[in-house]
């Protein structure tokens, strides 16, 4: 079972935001666990091919950020050992607190990466491109073509490198890559030409009106002018600058709508927003609830600092429970697949 790309976008936004907001290792570990679990449950089974070695990268990030901070930040009460102070930058006491702080910064980064990776693995690229607004459709298309291009180019690169190696070529300097780069560039250009020929032969662009109507141009121009004028006015202390800027923005939005209308395009098997998608969005939004000024949550527990002396991080049970809202996709998939099993 699959979900709407827009629901996944909300999930990614909330997960990423929480990973940035909290510095508490317990919450971060929970978020990391949830994101990995959701990817495990929702990633398409046949997603073969190259995958980012997540755990290996994570380990490298954690080790690096821990060591880096320990060597650079010489604050904290628990000194592990000291380097001679005459050594520039790294000299001085190396503390447990600095190491823990470095580790936490790394953990944050890893958690953020984990959410992005899950999103990338789960949501098919053509649905991602479907998220691009209509007037920017071509941008989405370029992204999609680039995705098909990358593995092809890698393949070609290896082939050309082998072909040059069998002529006795040795890649001992930067200049020595010329015999690979030139055929690769030319082949890439040829492929791009063939592709554009194919797209034209399949009628790409036959419904798009090439000329931009004067009204859209005028609106865009006026909008940009007003926005700029408003900004300048604000800079000179005029409070009404805001108003001018808003009017300018409005004009730009109108111009954009006008441009979208030019672009006639339909979608194959357009996805309808289903109840499950609403559940995922609600689950994700639930996580944001403790951020609101409502009683009953220990909001301060989100922030944790090992300085000046390392202590145990606090944990608010209710905030932890709310975080489970991000696990909604995995929950739905689990219930759905157990239902399918039971019926079969």
């Amino acid at each position: 079972m699959t979900f709407d790309a827009r629901a996944w976008l909300i999930w990614l936004f909330v997960g990423g935001l929480m990973a940035i907001l909290t510095s508490n290792p317990l919450y971060l570990a929970l978020l990391l666990f949830i994101s990995r679990m959701v990817e495990g449950a929702c990633a398409p089974i046949d997603a073969n091919g190259w995958r980012l070695p997540f755990w290996r990268i994570s380990l490298a990030v954690l080790v690096f950020s821990t060591l880096f901070n320990m060597l650079m930040a010489h604050v904290g009460h628990t000194t592990l050992f000291s380097l001679p102070t005459s050594w520039p930058l790294v000299g001085g006491p190396l503390t447990l607190e600095a190491a823990v702080y470095g580790f936490l910064s790394g953990l944050r980064l890893v958690t953020l990466l984990s959410f992005f990776l899950a999103f990338n693995t789960i949501v098919p690229t053509h649905e991602m491109a479907g998220l691009t607004p209509r007037a920017l459709h071509e941008l989405g298309l370029i992204m999609l073509i680039a995705i098909t291009y990358v593995p092809e180019t890698m393949h070609q690169f290896r082939r050309i490198r082998d072909a040059q190696a069998i002529r006795g070529h040795q890649f001992d300097s930067l200049r020595a890559w010329r015999p690979v780069i030139i055929p690769l560039l030319i082949a890439g250009l040829e492929r791009a030409l063939n592709l554009s020929e194919t797209m034209v032969a399949r009628g790409y662009g036959s419904t798009t009106q090439v000329k931009t109507p004067p009204r859209a141009r005028l609106l865009m121009f006026a909008g940009l002018l007003l926005a700029l004028g408003g900004a300048i006015r604000l800079a000179w202390g005029g409070v009404d600058g805001w108003l001018i800027m808003v009017i300018g923005m409005l004009a730009i939005v109108l111009a954009y709508r006008e441009l979208s209308r030019l672009f006639v395009h339909t979608r194959y098997r357009p996805r309808r927003w289903m109840l499950f998608d609403t559940l995922i969005a609600l689950g994700a939004l639930l996580v944001m609830f403790p951020l609101l000024p409502v009683p009953g949550f220990d909001r301060l527990s989100l922030a944790f600092s090992p300085y000046p002396e390392l202590g145990l991080p606090p944990f608010d049970l209710w905030i932890g429970v709310m975080f489970l809202g991000l696990a909604m996709p995995a929950l739905i998939v689990a219930i759905y697949s157990s239902g399918v099993e039971a019926s079969s």
């Binding site: 053509h126 098909t148 040829e190 020929e197 194919t198």
Partner: peptide, 13 residues
């Protein structure tokens, strides 16, 4: 229209 090389004709994945 169909060209020679199938790999150069794929627009999407």
């Amino acid at each position: 229209f169909v060209a020679q090389d199938p790999e150069a004709q794929a627009v999407l994945d």
